[in-house]
Design a protein around this nucleic acid. Sequence first.
DNA 1: CTTGCGTCCTGCTCGC
DNA 2: TGCGAGCAGGACGCAA
Length: 284
Amino acid sequence: MPELPEVEAIRRQLTVSILDRTVERVRVHRRDVVRDTHGRRRGRLTDPQLGVDRRIRRVDRRGKQLIIEFDHGQGLVIRLGMSGRIEVGDAGRRRSVPPHRHLAWTIAGGSSRSTLRMEFIDPRRFGGIHLFKSPEDRDQRVLRNLGPEATLIDGKALGERLKASRRAIKAVLLDQQVLAGIGNIYADESLFRAGIRPERPAFDLNEQDLERLAASIRTTLEHAIDAGGTTLRDHRLPDGSAGTFGAGHLAYGRSGQPCTHCRKSMNSGIVAGRSTTWCEFCQR
DNA sequence: CTTGCGTCCTGCTCGC
DNA sequence: TGCGAGCAGGACGCAA
């Protein structure tokens, strides 16, 4: 589930807990979730690559990927896939090991703070961790094909990205090369809020449509970030709390329920190969 | 260039 | 109550 808002909410919490702290050790419980700098799943993994004895100097995000950079320039690009999450807690506190925990970092607390444990957990394993050896390596290799951040898009830039595409607008919004960060939930939410049908060909949108769509993408994502994202099932913030934006959904998951605008029943079907919910009357 | 499909996985929900 | 089918936030690769 993690789309941009979920990952950004995770990033903000992580910044508070782990930024500027030093990694003491790492345990790899499932090495095939990690891709080394050659993109291989079974290459050698070394402590320095995973940040041991290094200070965490940046916690960033690009689209749906979380980025942790250490003070020697190496770092991790974490993709959460469908079911991935990052958990951070007090290392001293004993508790049962969560199932599907693939990596665990122990992070020093410094003079007056407690030692932390940060874990990567991903039951379905659609997610994974890509190692990079420098910020340039990260941008050129791991994050190469990502479009501009969805939070920053405006109507003009969106129009340029769509060009004369005949693809359904929803398919285009889901394409990370066009726009980075939108997934199935926020595609439906943004299109509903902009009053645009998901199956409409991208080239059919005029300037005004594009402005409305770009604006609804930005505001929908902002509100979702502030709510900690949407927790349908798996998404959790690092401290274990859930995102509450689900209560604010106007489209996603509301099939058969009344449209919040015209009160008629919301439609659903498959668009761009994904389950899609929209209002037949309010979206044109 | 497109779309449409299957694939990678686990686990939850629904209908019989 | 039990069991299997279907479906899920994502992203690839392949065939047509």
